[in-house]
Nucleic acid binder design. Structure first.
Lengths: 107, 107
DNA sequence: GCGCCATGCTACAAATAATGTAGCTTACAT
DNA sequence: ATGTAAGCTACATTATTTGTAGCATGGCGC
């Protein structure tokens, strides 16, 4: 139990003391942005979230969720289901414009 | 001879046809956000960029730069130095508010 | 021309992280 | 008690990153 534990995972760049670096690092991990995105309009159960995230492996999802929880962006509501904290909602707002940008970008 | 080559790297989530997914995946790769961030106020030579990115390995940097270039966010100016394209600058703008958020977030 | 640097970029082994599949445990309802 | 669904862990395989070294090209001064 708890083998893959915490590992002190001190977000890269946090040493610099510049919060933005820590944030960029945290969000620059696989599925992190996607998770926040999928939770944008309401909580999801871990299983539903997995579904929304194109069946990403539960291992990473769990890891990301833990990190995002420690960062205070996500919480596991009593009664089950992951949802954004008020802070997490704020964060989500800040990159909501990405949606419009992406549409414009197309490719 | 191009072993780590291109690999058609079709951005995860692009199959869904939803550009936002492709974008979230692209930006959710190590150093991608950081690179855009570091280029925010002017071009940098590959070496300077490496310096700015806490000495990230040239391998990933090169990989990310290639991807970001293919996405049209970054370009290698003639005379050297990587810089944001107009599109890239737009993208950068959209998550500039993250800076303020990060400061507020602190931790 | 020749040496001297800086640039963009590649090689490659070692270390980390992610994927995919299985399955455990707890809680709750039937 | 049986059936489900939840959150979460194991673990072997595969992919990505790191770290260090180094190559090729293009100035620039001499």
């Amino acid at each position: 139990m708890a083998k893959q534990a915490v590992k002190t995972h001190s977000v890269r760049g946090s040493r610099t003391g510049r919060p933005i670096m820590a944030l960029l690092d945290l969000l620059g991990r696989r599925w992190a942005l996607r998770i926040l995105w999928e939770l944008r309009d309401g909580p999801l159960t871990s299983r539903a979230l997995r579904g929304a995230c194109d069946e990403a492996s539960p291992t990473v999802l769990q890891a990301r969720l833990t990190e995002l929880r420690e960062a205070g962006f996500v919480e596991l509501g009593d009664g089950g289901g992951y949802g954004l904290t008020p802070l997490g909602r704020d964060l989500c707002e800040t990159f909501m414009p990405l949606h419009r940008f992406a549409e414009r970008w197309k490719r």
